[in-house]
């Protein structure tokens, strides 16, 4: 009872505060702090971040991202072709030479979010390098229709193989796109999974994921399964 009253009082206060006139948002999307030079930024980075591995600082200085940052993701045609060439040259095949691996393994890599988190010594949420990494594709894509969450930064990949088939060209494209998204779209929002400092996946894992997207038996290319509750409802 007392709880009820207090809560409604709180809600009233919350509603009242909504009427505060909103200031006009400053649009920083063009400026992006460009008065700070890359050298000044790196100096601040060196002072601000702790790591036992000096290579980790390369994660702030990737040549492709440097161009993307300087051009606000709009590289000139010359810069774009430099990026595409550099990123294309990073792509390697799995040891067995096959673009398609095991889709059941691929399912695990696509769902997993473990991998690459750098901690402070003793910090419990850092990722141990001895465990295989996941790719967390659901952060950005809908993939398997049975998976409960997805993001919307990338297009839906549900029915990917059903829509595109398994021809040699699509198999190769899918593998290469996952291995290095920036070998097709210079400043793609999608991470480069097979290349770059701290990249998350091995070539074999990329092949497994390629199979997960394309194999006819993969849940990606099959209708959503009814849950027990939904089935009972029918």
């Amino acid at each position: 009872m007392i709880n009820q009253i207090r809560i409604s009082g709180y809600l009233l206060a919350a509603c009242a505060s909504l009427t505060v006139t909103m200031a006009h948002a400053v649009d920083d999307s063009k400026d992006r702090g460009k008065s700070v030079s890359d050298a000044e930024f790196m100096q601040a980075v060196k002072e601000s971040f702790l790591t036992e591995n000096p290579n980790d600082f390369k994660r702030f200085q990737d040549p492709t991202l440097t161009t993307c940052n300087q051009t606000q993701d709009q590289p000139s045609p010359k810069q774009a072709s430099e990026i595409l060439q550099r990123e294309r040259s990073s792509i390697q095949l799995p040891k067995n030479g096959q673009y398609m691996g095991d889709w059941k393994q691929g399912k695990i890599w696509v769902e997993g979010a473990h991998g690459g988190r750098i901690g402070f010594p003793g910090f419990a949420d850092a990722d141990h390098p001895s465990k295989p990494n996941g790719a967390n594709c659901y952060a950005c894509h809908a993939v398997d229709p049975n998976f409960p969450q997805n993001g919307n930064m990338g297009p839906s990949l549900t029915n990917y193989g059903k829509l595109r088939g398994q021809g040699a060209a699509i198999v190769k494209y899918t593998y290469e796109k996952i291995y290095n998204a920036k070998s097709f779209v210079p400043c793609s929002l999608m991470p480069r999974y097979g290349a770059g400092e701290g990249h998350l996946l091995t070539a074999e894992q990329v092949a497994d994921i390629t199979a997960f997207l394309l194999h006819p038996d993969s849940p990606v290319n099959n209708p959503k399964q009814e849950t027990v509750a939904e089935a009972a409802h029918h």
Binding site: D28, S29, D31, R32, G33, K34, S35, V36, E40, F41, A44, R59, F60, D62, L65, C68, N69, G116, K182, S188, L189, M190, P191, R192, G196, E197, G198, H199, L200
Partner: peptide
């Protein structure tokens, strides 16, 4: 403030974000 703006808008890290 400008350094904060730069950091906020700069793509970096293994996720390229």
């Amino acid at each position: 403030y400008e350094l904060g703006k730069k950091t906020f808008w700069n793509r970096m890290g293994a996720m390229d974000l």
